[in-house]
Nucleic acid binder design. Structure first.
Lengths: 247, 247
DNA sequence: CGCGCCTGAATGAAACTTCAACGAGGAAAT
DNA sequence: ATTTCCTCGTTGAAGTTTCATTCAGGCGCG
């Protein structure tokens, strides 16, 4: 039986299905983000993707299918990219800071799409809405685990890790949700910095603060070789540098 | 000239206009919140309001008008009810806590409508979107001022009041946005309590913490005469009691 | 030739908006 | 006082447009 997570295609070649779907979903995310789900037409998506309207129905059963895969793509990015940034890091405080930092940078990159998720998840069929929410819960757990590790290691005093993880997630999401006003006051880098000051530092133990200082130093080291370290699009550059460093 | 904020009616009697619009907007908020803006039809709104479809167009020029007044109603509630709760309170820490507490309780009461604001503000005409955002900014300032008063009075250490006010606002909004998961773990009262612990307490000075203890005691006094103080729908009861107390 | 992929105009339903007509109530005219 | 008329609020079916979805037919390749 075809259940909630499946999206079935009429075209048989799996390779082609994946490629075309990627093409269509990319177009859809762009248009949905700009204009909203209901105001975007299938014809617009087809034109944006460079194919005919009819072809879309060879890869998706209906418009709801497209929205589902679009949102899933966004949520999957969160779920995969944050752990990949933590790869090789062992210091709990550093892992926590990097996870928040990574989360915010992904939100920045997928800013419009993140807003789309808030706008349109409720437009999904109920059974699929649950799958999207599950994905969000899993991402949340990532942060929560980082917090638990800090507490267990004595880097952070006893707190409600569950609540704080939600605050940290909302902090990241807010960069997209309130971008219209936040971006007038802060660059992404400064925003993340303030977030750490407000939502992490106050709960660190003396041991934890020493750890944080180490993270700060290391970050400066990563950034210092670029004259534009704090500006424009530092996200991509920083991420690349980090990957090389941990590889 | 008719500008962004105006919604013009064909019916002349102002008294009638206000009444009918209230009727229509109440129906619209209910339906928009349940089903979303685009999936709700004018006919449904008319039926819910107990009038004919044609009549709606005597009081609104188009569907966008209805959405605008619906969202404005929600935002206005925030802007008016929070200050009214602060009326008569002088202690800065108490004012801060009550404003957060009031914000969360209003969000709880207008939970679906708050989600609606996040989903549908972008569906508004651009010039009106700005008006809605302005209203949100003004509400934000309320919280920010409470924070500033705490810092200036020596109740709270120097912090970025702007950023913290946004965190507090997002904390309140999250009760609506993440209600599907938060309500599994917390009652509203406990949620607010945890919020104070996480987002206010850490920044209080010794003087501020003494103030907070006073607030806690006073609140317990207000609640103690009810055997259900922490359950079900304490919001309305608490608010009524508070009003009597300050009157 | 047949199969799989693709096209884009046609279809049909859905829903925003309009409009012709109704009724009540008051003012003017007889 | 009664009748007529007119205005204002109201109705709900009709008009019009806008899409999601389908389908009859191309194109290329094995």
């Amino acid at each position: 039986m075809a259940s909630a997570g499946d999206v079935q295609a009429l075209v048989t070649d799996p390779k082609l299905v994946e490629e075309r779907r990627g093409q269509i979903v990319r177009a859809a995310v762009k248009l949905f983000s700009e204009d909203g789900y209901y105001t975007t037409t299938i014809q617009q998506i087809a034109r944006q993707a460079g194919i005919s309207t009819g072809l879309i129905y060879q890869y998706f059963r209906d418009k709801d299918d497209i929205l589902f895969l679009s949102l899933k793509m966004v949520l999957d990015t969160y779920e995969h990219e944050i752990p990949s940034q933590l790869d090789g890091l062992t210091d709990p405080v550093e892992r926590l800071c990097v996870s928040v930092w990574a989360y915010c940078h992904i939100v920045d990159r997928l800013r419009e799409a993140t807003v789309l998720a808030y706008r349109s998840t409720k437009s999904l069929r109920a059974d699929r809405r649950i799958l999207i929410k599950d994905a969000e819960t899993r991402t949340n757990r990532l942060i929560e685990k980082c917090l638990k590790a800090c507490v267990d290691g004595g880097y952070m005093r006893e707190i409600n890790e569950y609540m704080l993880s939600y605050q940290l997630v909302m902090f990241a999401h807010s960069w997209a949700l309130k971008h219209w006003v936040l971006s007038e006051h802060y660059s992404l880098e400064r925003y993340v910095g303030e977030g750490v000051t407000l939502l992490i530092e106050p709960f660190l133990t003396a041991k934890g603060r020493r750890g944080l200082a180490g993270v700060a130093l290391r970050k400066r080291a990563f950034t210092s070789d670029s004259p534009f370290g704090d500006e424009a699009k530092p996200a991509a550059a920083l991420m690349r540098r980090r990957k090389r460093a941990t590889a």
